[in-house]
Design a protein around this nucleic acid. Structure first.
Lengths: 120, 120
DNA sequence: TTGATATTGATAACCATTATCATATTTAAT
DNA sequence: ATTAAATATGATAATGGTTATCAATATCAA
């Protein structure tokens, strides 16, 4: 679990479990794919890893110590992400929910683009 | 394809391909699962069906003729959804993208709650 | 009609994720 | 330190949604 977390931290952005597993194996670590999945799930439950789901069918993970609610702007090329404040958007969703009488409203934002480094 | 579209329209909200297939079969239609997937994909490409991805691993679809960019507030119980205007949120994402120098930024919002009808 | 093209349904293949299980490792109590 | 119980690990099988394959059928043009 520590191994997985460190690898994810050194990754610096979003990465899939499969990719993380491959990189750990390439580095010579003796680790199983199941352990990578288990660790990522535990870490996300404990709040030190955030989960996102891109357009493809893979779930992607990123180390993030910030337990407060926020969102990420993610690079579709390299997976790098910046934490973004979303007060405005929070207020917007709350008012929309109220307007239509929906309760227990939660939201997930997937905001992707190309980061400055990945722009040729 | 027409059959799938009509079934999706009569559904009135978000539903998975598997569920739609089951309902069509239960109704006595002679249709294959592959055709349901193919039709939904074509329809989403032509812009008459929108795609969302819930918490679970299923992709869900909803008929939506509106080609303009907007979002949906969806009920996690019954799949019903209301179209919501998102001007505010659009401006917010655009300004965030500019702030961090990201280009070609797109976003997907998944906003779910419990609709008035499903509140006991 | 007839031949070419496209669509369909059944089913196999795919692939990310999860469950299983025997082994190894850690922990706790004596 | 020893040992027994509890837990974590790695390998691999199983799961399930989605896609690819392919023969059969339907559509269309000449």
């Amino acid at each position: 679990m520590d191994l997985v977390y460190e690898a994810l931290v050194s990754e610096g952005g979003f990465v899939s479990a499969q990719d993380l597993y491959r990189k750990l194996k390439d580095r010579g670590e003796n680790i199983g794919l199941a352990t990578v999945y288990r660790s990522l799930q535990s870490l996300s439950e404990s709040g030190s890893v955030v989960i996102a789901r891109g357009d493809d069918s893979e779930t992607i993970y990123s180390a993030c110590e910030d337990g407060t609610h926020h969102h990420h702007l993610r690079c579709k090329r390299c997976g790098a992400s910046v934490k973004i404040d979303s007060e405005e958007a929070e207020r917007w969703t709350a008012s929309v929910a109220r307007e239509y009488g929906y309760v227990e409203v939660s939201h997930t934002f997937d905001i992707v683009g190309i980061c400055p480094k990945c722009q040729t």
